[in-house]
Design a binder for these strands. Structure first.
Length: 493
DNA sequence: TTGGGG
């Protein structure tokens, strides 16, 4: 930890380099022969107002935004051996191309002729575009010693290579990617804060100043549990999405068909939003929380949450992209993660060899009329009570199901002509009710349950295979009036 | 000049 600082102090004693920071500042002119004394951050903090040089790792990358003046501005957080908490550096430039463009956290930055300044009791690095300069180097895995970006006035020092190697060695033991607190969408939890590394696919301002971010990392959010009684007795179907209004079809069609898209809600404006609105960026959501609403996962950005932009080259991003590539390369791995290794065999579908599609693949399909084979959970059914199921078995009433997979929720109908077949023939009402309960994840009553309030517990519907075909009701609004009908699917005995 | 984590 103190080793590098010690080494530099030793050099000063040996007269190898400038003996004081003031002298170092004097030496740090634009001459190619200039010597640059790199101070550990902790030492730099002791000499505010003096021109100094730092060689540090970038731990956080802010968004480039317009300043309140005429420039663009960008803030980085940098760390080194001497100060793991790091220090904030703000850059200004009249053109965003002149700002440092750090490809990944964990990359290395050299800063010449900067100053430490105190503001509101906190120390910051002041970068002055008139006399400061910077250079950016790759991180721990690289042996390339040339900077991949440097400001016009940057002059490399003869010690740069040596210090860069030291910094990379330190970084290999102190990676700046915070992997220990990172979760993937597949492992999110309620009631605790964590970091998510996600691609922001879309940003939308809801009517009341609430922002919704649509984020994805290539994995599936965990299957949720549902209330036992309330929603199964209601003739009001559970909602299909958390937003007041669903996404327009043209936006939905830009989203991936495999992996969940989490809706993240915030009522706070943060400057990274400007970037996230412009294109699809990867970002780190620090201290995000999630909860379930109507059995759907909802991301919440409390005031403690921060957002950091990540590049496609960031280690955590590369890892997620690789995982997704290997996921979609294997057909069976496109299926809901929670359904693996085996989906239930509660249903039987006629088209054994037909390919599998996610619900999102169907929703974004170019043709309004098509057929798919899916692997879904039955969130709700109406009717589902015995008294009504007799009408279904008699072909006098259809059934409306709410189906979900990790990519979407839809409503699907069992037409009254198909009801008897869906339940596997002409059954007693009791047998049909048992089958319906199986679909909904309602356990068979057992001796231990007798007298217990079933309403107090939760149900966990199984994953079932299901064939769907789309149709529409209105010739003049084929997309708006599209419906789904279950066919060629039968609940087993 | 600008801006400086919640």
């Amino acid at each position: 930890m103190e080793e590098a600082a010690g080494r530099q102090r030793k050099r000063q004693r040996d007269g190898d380099m400038a003996p004081s920071t003031e002298a170092a500042a004097a030496a740090a002119g634009p001459s190619a022969e200039a010597q640059y004394l790199y101070l550990p951050i902790a030492d730099a903090l002791k000499v505010p107002g003096v021109r100094i040089c730092l060689f540090a790792a970038v731990s956080e990358i802010g968004a480039a935004v317009r300043s309140r003046g005429t420039d663009f501005t960008l803030t980085l957080r940098i760390v080194d051996q001497s100060r793991a908490s790091g220090i904030s550096v703000t850059f200004f430039a009249d053109n965003t191309a002149l700002l440092p463009c750090v490809r990944s956290s964990g990359h290395v930055i050299s800063l010449h002729n900067i100053m430490i300044a105190l503001h509101n009791g906190e120390l910051f690095v002041t970068y002055n575009k008139k006399f400061s300069s910077f250079a950016l180097f790759e991180g721990k895995v690289s042996t390339e010693c040339r900077p991949y970006q440097h400001s016009a006035k940057y002059h490399g020092s003869k010690h740069d290579n040596e210090i860069l190697t030291q910094m990379r060695t330190w970084l290999s033991f102190h990676p700046q990617d915070h992997e220990d607190i990172e979760l993937q969408l597949r492992s999110i939890k309620s009631d605790s804060a964590f970091d998510l590394i996600c691609k922001v696919l879309h940003v939308r301002e809801a009517s009341n100043g609430v922002w919704i971010l649509y984020v994805w990392d290539g994995t599936d959010t965990p299957a949720t549990e549902f209330q036992m009684i309330l929603d199964t007795e209601s003739d009001i179907s559970p909602p299909l999405h958390l937003e007041e209004a669903p996404l327009p079809r043209e936006v939905l069609c830009t989203m991936p068909c495999v992996g969940s898209v989490l809706r993240v809600f915030t009522n706070r404006f943060f400057k990274e939003l400007l970037h996230l609105q412009k294109g699809t960026y990867w970002a780190r959501f620090c201290n995000i929380t999630c909860k379930q609403e109507f059995g759907m996962w909802k991301g919440i950005m409390l005031p403690i949450c921060r957002v950091r932009l990540l590049s496609n080259e960031d280690g955590s991003v590369v890892e997620r992209l690789k995982m997704f590539d290997s996921r979609i390369a294997v057909k069976v791995h496109r299926q809901p993660m929670a359904s693996l290794p085996n989906a239930s065999d509660i249903t039987d579908v006629e088209y054994k060899s037909a390919g599998y599609s996610t619900l999102m693949e169907s929703l974004t399909h170019g043709e309004v009329l098509h057929k798919i084979k899916t692997l879904v959970r039955v969130v709700a059914a109406y009717p589902c009570q015995a008294r009504d199921l007799s009408l279904v078995l008699a072909g006098k009433h259809g059934v409306r199901l709410t189906l979900e997979d990790p990519t979407a929720r839809i409503r699907a109908y069992i037409h009254r002509d198909d009801g008897a077949k869906f339940f596997g023939g002409f059954l007693t009402v009791e047998a049909a009710t048992r089958k319906m309960n199986k679909l909904l994840g309602i356990p068979e009553p057992t001796d231990t349950d007798v007298g217990e309030q079933a309403s107090a517990s939760k149900r966990n519907p199984p994953w079932i295979w299901c064939c769907l075909k789309s149709y529409y009701l209105d010739e003049d609004d084929i997309w708006g009036s599209r419906r789904y009908r279950i066919y060629a699917t039968e609940i087993r005995d």
